[in-house]
């Protein structure tokens, strides 16, 4: 399944986030692309549906109660004086020394490794984990149209419904683009 590369502008267009030049180009493209028009129409319906809701803002009495709660709060003094620590210094020294020894003996590696193999994420989880696990960078978004064929709406985020060939292709794609960081 091939996806029109202009699909990646659809959400930004619907949310009015496109730069004017990009917007004009996309509108010119829309006029001649039924696939993008259908995409735009569905997104427009989705956002119209979500945007219908009005927020029931609280009445002024609520905000007055919040003000009262704040007035009852002690204000932080910002940069606190640290001299009071000196009073506890004799007791703190052995505690700090013990804590330092504990940390030195139990310190973790300087970087956090992601120990789950990439294959496991792709085969059993979903793409959400990739950016959240810092396995990919900004270019993921740019590459979404490449991933699109593997990412049917009906499948939602689950990738475990891909056939073997699709799974292998996706794993190779991610490894080529982002390296094997797992």
């Amino acid at each position: 399944m091939s996806v029109c590369p202009y699909h990646r502008f659809a959400v930004d267009y619907a949310e009015d986030h496109l730069e004017p030049a990009c917007r004009e180009e996309y509108e010119r493209h829309l006029a001649g692309c039924p696939s993008c028009r259908a995409e735009q129409s569905e997104l427009g319906s989705l956002f119209a549906l979500i945007d219908k809701e009005e927020i029931p803002y609280p009445n002024p009495e609520f905000w007055e109660r919040v003000r009262q709660s704040m007035r009852n709060e002690p204000l932080s003094l910002g940069r606190r004086s640290w001299r009071w620590w000196f009073r506890f210094l004799p007791a703190l020294v052995p505690i700090l020394a013990a804590a330092w020894l504990f940390v030195v003996h139990n310190r973790p590696a300087s970087t956090i490794d992601f120990h789950v193999p990439l294959e496991n994420i792709v085969l059993s989880e979903d793409l959400d984990l990739l950016p959240l696990a810092a396995l990919v960078d900004d270019s993921l978004y740019e590459s979404m149209t490449v991933l699109e064929p593997y990412y049917e709406p009906d499948v939602d985020d689950a990738l475990d419904e891909l056939n073997d060939k699709q799974q292998k292709t996706l794993i190779i794609f991610i490894k080529e683009h982002y390296g094997q960081k797992s």
Binding site: V11, L127, L132, V136, D137, P153, D156, D157
Partner: peptide
Amino acid sequence: ITTGAAKANHYHAVRRLRSLL
């Protein structure tokens, strides 16, 4: 979070909302 993670989260949110609604 990273800009990429923000974009990806938004992308997935829209997709999921489309599917759910």
